[in-house]
């Protein structure tokens, strides 16, 4: 029961309190680049969540059974980035074969995920935080869910200001950053929710 409560807390705090985008600043590039429309933002979030869950799993396995076992911490970055790149490639081929509809929906977003720093950040945070296998998977999934939440909210806001009268020099990225700042302020309200 204790374990279960901890996992639930990890889930909630990764989405709301330590949100990958708004608090940890991981995955800003897709957050600014793919947040023009709610539908595409949601597809991006879905693809990222999928890869992140798998990455959480893979990162724990590799770290425990290869890097720690053979004492190779200096190869961590090289191995993690290679594994992520091949994982994304593999997921892309798998989805293409099994579900063409989903493949069409995710489209170009899948290959882009390799260079999303949220994925490598996730892989590096798992050994750093000392999570076990189940926690790593939950951490990966909830990080993806938090990413999806932030990017979909952002897309909704950007759709709403589409026709607003914004100063010419702030159009595009600058105004998105300012909106993200206000969102980060709002998310700070969650920080008192879970003690510790």
């Amino acid at each position: 029961m204790e374990e279960f409560t901890q996992i639930l807390l990890l889930f909630a705090s990764t989405i709301l309190i330590n949100n990958f985008i708004l608090v940890r600043f991981l995955g800003i590039c897709p957050f600014l680049g793919v947040s023009r429309q709610i539908s595409t933002a949601f597809s991006m979030g879905l693809a990222t969540t999928f890869v992140m869950t798998l990455t959480g799993m893979a990162a724990w396995l590799i770290n425990t059974y290869i890097l720690e076992k053979f004492n190779l911490p200096f190869l961590q970055y090289v191995i993690f980035i290679l594994v992520i790149a091949s994982l994304v490639q593999f997921v892309e081929m798998f989805i293409k074969k099994t579900s063409p509809a989903l493949y069409k929906a995710l489209g170009i977003f899948l290959p882009l995920i390799t260079t999303n720093c949220a994925i490598l950040g996730l892989a590096l945070l798992i050994p750093q935080n000392g999570y076990g296998f189940i926690k790593s998977v939950v951490f990966g999934f909830s990080a993806g869910a938090g990413f999806t939440l932030a990017i979909v909210l952002m897309a909704g806001l950007r759709e709403a200001i589409e026709f607003s009268d914004i100063p010419e020099v702030l159009k595009g990225v600058p105004i998105s950053l300012i909106i993200a700042g206000i969102m980060a302020l709002a998310f700070m309200g969650f920080s008192g929710m879970i003690p510790g």
Binding site: F25, L170, V173, P174, I175, L177, I178, G181, I182, M188
Partner: peptide, 22 residues
């Protein structure tokens, strides 16, 4: 203190980018 927190980072970069565009 807000300038040191994530919210300040987003807002100050947004405004700075606007200045650079200007």
């Amino acid at each position: 203190t807000i300038m040191l927190l994530p919210a300040g980072a987003f807002i100050s970069l947004g405004l700075l980018m606007g200045v650079m565009n200007l």
